[in-house]
Design a protein around this nucleic acid. Sequence first.
DNA 1: CCTTAGACCTGGAGGC
DNA 2: TGCCTCCAGGTCTAAG
Length: 272
Amino acid sequence: MPEGPEVQVVIRTLQEKLQDALITDVEVFYPKLEEDGHLTDLIGQRIRKFSRLGKYMIFETDDYDWIAHMRMEGKFYVFFSAPEDRRHIHAIFHLDDGRYLCYHDTRKFGRMSVYPKTEDLHSLPMLKNVGYDYTDPHVTGDYLYQEIHHSRRCLKMALLDQRIIAGIGNIYANEICFACGLDPRSRCTRLSKKDCALIVDVTRRILNEADALGGTTVHSFASGFGVTGRFQQHLQVHMQDGKPCPRCGHTIEKIMVQNRGTYLCRNCQKRK
DNA sequence: CCTTAGACCTGGAGGC
DNA sequence: TGCCTCCAGGTCTAAG
Protein backbone atom coordinates (compact mmCIF):
# COMPACT_ATOMS: atom_id res chain seq x y z
CA MET A 1 0.00 0.00 0.00
CA PRO A 2 2.55 2.48 0.96
CA GLU A 3 3.91 5.59 -0.66
CA GLY A 4 4.06 8.78 1.41
CA PRO A 5 0.36 9.68 1.13
CA GLU A 6 -0.82 6.15 1.94
CA VAL A 7 1.46 6.00 4.96
CA GLN A 8 0.06 9.37 6.06
CA VAL A 9 -3.49 8.02 5.82
CA VAL A 10 -2.57 4.96 7.88
CA ILE A 11 -0.79 7.08 10.48
CA ARG A 12 -3.82 9.35 10.83
CA THR A 13 -6.17 6.38 11.12
CA LEU A 14 -4.02 4.69 13.75
CA GLN A 15 -3.71 7.92 15.73
CA GLU A 16 -7.50 8.23 15.86
CA LYS A 17 -7.82 4.65 17.06
CA LEU A 18 -4.76 4.26 19.26
CA GLN A 19 -3.76 7.60 20.79
CA ASP A 20 -2.27 6.84 24.24
CA ALA A 21 -3.13 3.14 24.00
CA LEU A 22 -1.14 0.94 26.38
CA ILE A 23 0.65 -2.09 24.95
CA THR A 24 0.30 -4.98 27.38
CA ASP A 25 1.86 -7.79 25.35
CA VAL A 26 3.72 -8.31 22.09
CA GLU A 27 3.89 -11.46 19.97
CA VAL A 28 6.31 -11.71 17.05
CA PHE A 29 5.82 -14.64 14.68
CA TYR A 30 8.34 -13.69 12.00
CA PRO A 31 11.68 -12.81 13.61
CA LYS A 32 13.06 -11.05 10.52
CA LEU A 33 10.38 -8.40 10.99
CA GLU A 34 12.64 -6.92 13.66
CA GLU A 35 15.55 -4.92 12.27
CA ASP A 36 17.01 -3.09 15.30
CA GLY A 37 15.96 -3.56 18.92
CA HIS A 38 13.11 -5.70 20.20
CA LEU A 39 9.38 -5.18 19.84
CA THR A 40 8.85 -6.78 23.25
CA ASP A 41 10.47 -3.68 24.77
CA LEU A 42 7.18 -1.95 23.88
CA ILE A 43 5.34 -3.91 26.57
CA GLY A 44 4.17 -1.42 29.20
CA GLN A 45 4.51 1.54 26.84
CA ARG A 46 1.77 3.94 25.73
CA ILE A 47 1.82 5.23 22.15
CA ARG A 48 2.04 9.00 22.54
CA LYS A 49 2.73 10.37 19.10
CA PHE A 50 2.14 9.21 15.52
CA SER A 51 4.12 10.67 12.65
CA ARG A 52 5.78 9.86 9.36
CA LEU A 53 9.05 10.46 7.55
CA GLY A 54 8.82 9.53 3.89
CA LYS A 55 7.36 6.03 3.87
CA TYR A 56 8.48 5.27 7.43
CA MET A 57 5.98 5.30 10.28
CA ILE A 58 7.14 6.72 13.60
CA PHE A 59 5.37 5.75 16.81
CA GLU A 60 6.75 7.54 19.84
CA THR A 61 6.02 5.77 23.12
CA ASP A 62 6.96 6.89 26.62
CA ASP A 63 10.53 5.62 26.34
CA TYR A 64 11.03 4.47 22.75
CA ASP A 65 10.91 5.45 19.11
CA TRP A 66 9.21 2.62 17.25
CA ILE A 67 9.87 2.82 13.52
CA ALA A 68 7.96 0.72 10.96
CA HIS A 69 8.11 0.38 7.20
CA MET A 70 5.34 -1.52 5.41
CA ARG A 71 7.32 -1.89 2.15
CA MET A 72 5.12 -3.36 -0.57
CA GLU A 73 2.17 -4.97 1.17
CA GLY A 74 2.34 -4.38 4.92
CA LYS A 75 -0.90 -3.42 6.66
CA PHE A 76 -1.98 -2.61 10.20
CA TYR A 77 -5.34 -3.78 11.48
CA VAL A 78 -7.06 -3.14 14.78
CA PHE A 79 -9.22 -6.07 15.90
CA PHE A 80 -11.56 -6.39 18.86
CA SER A 81 -10.69 -10.08 19.23
CA ALA A 82 -7.56 -12.05 18.41
CA PRO A 83 -7.61 -12.92 14.70
CA GLU A 84 -8.43 -16.53 13.86
CA ASP A 85 -6.50 -16.59 10.60
CA ARG A 86 -2.94 -15.73 11.50
CA ARG A 87 -1.56 -16.45 8.07
CA HIS A 88 0.51 -13.42 7.05
CA ILE A 89 0.12 -11.81 10.46
CA HIS A 90 3.68 -11.41 11.74
CA ALA A 91 3.15 -9.49 14.95
CA ILE A 92 0.30 -8.85 17.39
CA PHE A 93 0.34 -6.01 19.90
CA HIS A 94 -2.13 -6.56 22.74
CA LEU A 95 -3.73 -3.37 24.04
CA ASP A 96 -5.04 -2.76 27.54
CA ASP A 97 -8.62 -2.18 26.36
CA GLY A 98 -8.79 -5.69 24.89
CA ARG A 99 -8.07 -4.71 21.29
CA TYR A 100 -5.29 -6.16 19.15
CA LEU A 101 -3.06 -4.20 16.79
CA CYS A 102 -2.01 -6.67 14.10
CA TYR A 103 0.71 -6.34 11.47
CA HIS A 104 -0.13 -8.22 8.26
CA ASP A 105 2.34 -8.56 5.38
CA THR A 106 1.94 -11.15 2.62
CA ARG A 107 5.40 -10.72 1.19
CA LYS A 108 7.21 -10.29 4.51
CA PHE A 109 9.18 -7.28 3.25
CA GLY A 110 8.14 -4.93 6.05
CA ARG A 111 10.55 -4.12 8.88
CA MET A 112 10.33 -2.59 12.37
CA SER A 113 12.86 -1.20 14.81
CA VAL A 114 12.71 -0.03 18.42
CA TYR A 115 15.17 2.59 19.66
CA PRO A 116 15.52 4.49 22.92
CA LYS A 117 13.88 7.90 22.42
CA THR A 118 15.95 10.44 20.53
CA GLU A 119 15.60 14.08 19.52
CA ASP A 120 17.18 13.51 16.13
CA LEU A 121 15.17 10.96 14.17
CA HIS A 122 17.49 11.24 11.16
CA SER A 123 20.26 9.78 13.36
CA LEU A 124 18.43 6.45 13.72
CA PRO A 125 20.08 3.65 11.70
CA MET A 126 16.81 2.62 10.06
CA LEU A 127 16.36 6.17 8.74
CA LYS A 128 19.93 6.72 7.56
CA ASN A 129 18.98 6.76 3.88
CA VAL A 130 15.95 9.01 4.32
CA GLY A 131 16.21 12.67 3.37
CA TYR A 132 13.64 15.47 3.63
CA ASP A 133 10.01 14.48 3.49
CA TYR A 134 8.04 15.75 0.49
CA THR A 135 6.16 18.08 2.83
CA ASP A 136 9.39 19.54 4.26
CA PRO A 137 9.98 23.20 3.35
CA HIS A 138 13.65 22.36 2.70
CA VAL A 139 12.44 20.74 -0.51
CA THR A 140 12.52 23.54 -3.08
CA GLY A 141 13.29 23.74 -6.79
CA ASP A 142 16.79 25.02 -6.00
CA TYR A 143 17.34 22.16 -3.55
CA LEU A 144 16.27 19.55 -6.09
CA TYR A 145 18.42 21.11 -8.81
CA GLN A 146 21.39 21.12 -6.44
CA GLU A 147 20.85 17.45 -5.57
CA ILE A 148 20.34 16.04 -9.06
CA HIS A 149 21.88 18.17 -11.78
CA HIS A 150 25.22 16.37 -11.50
CA SER A 151 23.56 12.95 -11.67
CA ARG A 152 23.77 10.79 -14.76
CA ARG A 153 20.61 9.01 -13.71
CA CYS A 154 17.21 9.49 -15.29
CA LEU A 155 14.54 11.69 -13.71
CA LYS A 156 12.39 8.85 -12.43
CA MET A 157 15.27 7.22 -10.57
CA ALA A 158 16.03 10.53 -8.86
CA LEU A 159 12.38 10.88 -7.82
CA LEU A 160 12.49 7.40 -6.28
CA ASP A 161 15.71 8.15 -4.36
CA GLN A 162 14.48 8.57 -0.79
CA ARG A 163 17.63 10.48 0.20
CA ILE A 164 16.60 13.37 -2.04
CA ILE A 165 12.84 13.59 -1.52
CA ALA A 166 11.31 11.02 0.83
CA GLY A 167 7.83 9.66 0.21
CA ILE A 168 7.61 9.35 -3.59
CA GLY A 169 7.08 5.82 -4.89
CA ASN A 170 6.50 4.23 -8.28
CA ILE A 171 2.90 5.34 -8.80
CA TYR A 172 3.46 8.97 -7.92
CA ALA A 173 6.78 9.11 -9.79
CA ASN A 174 4.86 8.14 -12.93
CA GLU A 175 2.15 10.71 -12.21
CA ILE A 176 4.64 13.47 -11.41
CA CYS A 177 6.53 12.95 -14.69
CA PHE A 178 3.28 13.10 -16.63
CA ALA A 179 2.04 16.22 -14.86
CA CYS A 180 5.38 17.92 -15.60
CA GLY A 181 5.32 16.91 -19.26
CA LEU A 182 8.68 15.18 -18.81
CA ASP A 183 9.68 11.72 -20.01
CA PRO A 184 10.72 9.70 -16.93
CA ARG A 185 13.88 8.65 -18.80
CA SER A 186 15.07 12.26 -19.10
CA ARG A 187 18.64 12.73 -17.89
CA CYS A 188 18.89 14.70 -14.66
CA THR A 189 21.81 16.67 -16.10
CA ARG A 190 19.55 18.08 -18.80
CA LEU A 191 16.93 19.41 -16.37
CA SER A 192 16.84 23.16 -15.73
CA LYS A 193 16.20 24.96 -12.46
CA LYS A 194 12.80 25.80 -13.88
CA ASP A 195 12.09 22.10 -14.49
CA CYS A 196 13.11 21.34 -10.91
CA ALA A 197 10.85 24.07 -9.53
CA LEU A 198 7.94 22.61 -11.51
CA ILE A 199 8.74 19.08 -10.33
CA VAL A 200 8.70 20.17 -6.68
CA ASP A 201 5.42 22.07 -7.07
CA VAL A 202 3.76 19.19 -8.89
CA THR A 203 5.05 16.65 -6.36
CA ARG A 204 3.46 18.51 -3.44
CA ARG A 205 0.22 19.10 -5.33
CA ILE A 206 -0.21 15.45 -6.37
CA LEU A 207 0.86 13.86 -3.07
CA ASN A 208 -1.23 16.26 -1.00
CA GLU A 209 -4.26 15.62 -3.17
CA ALA A 210 -3.72 11.86 -2.89
CA ASP A 211 -3.50 12.22 0.89
CA ALA A 212 -6.75 14.20 0.97
CA LEU A 213 -8.48 11.48 -1.07
CA GLY A 214 -7.31 8.70 1.23
CA GLY A 215 -4.41 7.55 -0.96
CA THR A 216 -4.24 5.14 -3.88
CA THR A 217 -5.39 1.52 -3.77
CA VAL A 218 -4.19 -0.36 -6.82
CA HIS A 219 -4.55 -3.99 -5.85
CA SER A 220 -7.88 -4.83 -4.32
CA PHE A 221 -6.96 -6.52 -1.09
CA ALA A 222 -9.19 -8.82 0.90
CA SER A 223 -12.14 -6.52 1.38
CA GLY A 224 -13.48 -5.62 4.76
CA PHE A 225 -10.53 -4.10 6.50
CA GLY A 226 -7.57 -1.94 5.73
CA VAL A 227 -7.49 1.37 3.97
CA THR A 228 -8.85 1.89 0.50
CA GLY A 229 -8.22 5.23 -1.12
CA ARG A 230 -9.94 7.06 -3.92
CA PHE A 231 -6.95 8.60 -5.69
CA GLN A 232 -6.75 5.69 -8.13
CA GLN A 233 -9.73 7.27 -9.90
CA HIS A 234 -7.50 10.30 -10.52
CA LEU A 235 -4.51 8.46 -11.94
CA GLN A 236 -3.59 9.97 -15.31
CA VAL A 237 -1.04 7.43 -16.56
CA HIS A 238 -0.27 4.77 -13.93
CA MET A 239 -1.94 1.49 -14.98
CA GLN A 240 -3.57 3.33 -17.88
CA ASP A 241 -1.65 1.72 -20.74
CA GLY A 242 -3.75 1.35 -23.87
CA LYS A 243 -6.02 4.22 -22.86
CA PRO A 244 -5.93 7.68 -24.44
CA CYS A 245 -3.81 10.33 -22.80
CA PRO A 246 -6.09 12.72 -20.89
CA ARG A 247 -4.11 15.65 -22.27
CA CYS A 248 -3.61 14.84 -25.96
CA GLY A 249 -5.42 11.58 -26.74
CA HIS A 250 -2.25 9.72 -27.77
CA THR A 251 -2.16 6.15 -26.44
CA ILE A 252 -0.47 5.71 -23.05
CA GLU A 253 2.30 3.13 -23.08
CA LYS A 254 3.89 0.93 -20.47
CA ILE A 255 7.65 0.50 -20.55
CA MET A 256 10.23 -0.73 -18.06
CA VAL A 257 12.62 1.82 -16.62
CA GLN A 258 15.27 0.33 -14.36
CA ASN A 259 13.05 -2.67 -13.81
CA ARG A 260 10.05 -0.63 -12.62
CA GLY A 261 6.76 -0.49 -14.51
CA THR A 262 6.62 2.95 -16.08
CA TYR A 263 3.65 4.56 -17.81
CA LEU A 264 3.89 7.54 -20.09
CA CYS A 265 2.50 9.45 -23.04
CA ARG A 266 5.28 9.71 -25.60
CA ASN A 267 3.52 12.58 -27.30
CA CYS A 268 3.30 15.07 -24.48
CA GLN A 269 6.10 13.99 -22.15
CA LYS A 270 9.30 15.50 -23.49
CA ARG A 271 12.54 13.54 -23.22
CA LYS A 272 15.38 15.79 -22.18
C1' DC B 1 32.25 7.70 -5.89
C1' DC B 2 28.10 6.47 -8.78
C1' DT B 3 24.99 3.30 -11.03
C1' DT B 4 22.62 -0.93 -11.75
C1' DA B 5 21.19 -6.09 -11.57
C1' DG B 6 19.93 -9.28 -7.94
C1' DA B 7 17.97 -10.57 -3.66
C1' DC B 8 14.35 -10.66 -0.37
C1' DC B 9 8.93 -12.99 -0.30
C1' DT B 10 4.18 -14.48 -1.70
C1' DG B 11 0.12 -14.74 -4.55
C1' DG B 12 -2.63 -13.37 -8.50
C1' DA B 13 -3.05 -13.07 -13.54
C1' DG B 14 -2.46 -14.78 -17.93
C1' DG B 15 -0.45 -18.12 -21.42
C1' DC B 16 -0.43 -22.87 -22.88
C1' DT C 1 -7.38 -28.10 -13.81
C1' DG C 2 -2.46 -27.67 -13.63
C1' DC C 3 1.94 -25.79 -14.48
C1' DC C 4 4.81 -22.05 -15.75
C1' DT C 5 6.37 -17.30 -16.09
C1' DC C 6 5.83 -12.66 -15.11
C1' DC C 7 4.51 -9.00 -12.29
C1' DA C 8 3.46 -6.16 -7.96
C1' DG C 9 2.84 0.48 -4.27
C1' DG C 10 10.24 -0.94 -1.74
C1' DT C 11 14.91 -0.92 -0.44
C1' DC C 12 19.38 -3.00 0.67
C1' DT C 13 23.54 -5.43 -1.33
C1' DA C 14 27.04 -6.72 -4.12
C1' DA C 15 29.33 -6.06 -8.26
C1' DG C 16 30.55 -3.38 -12.40
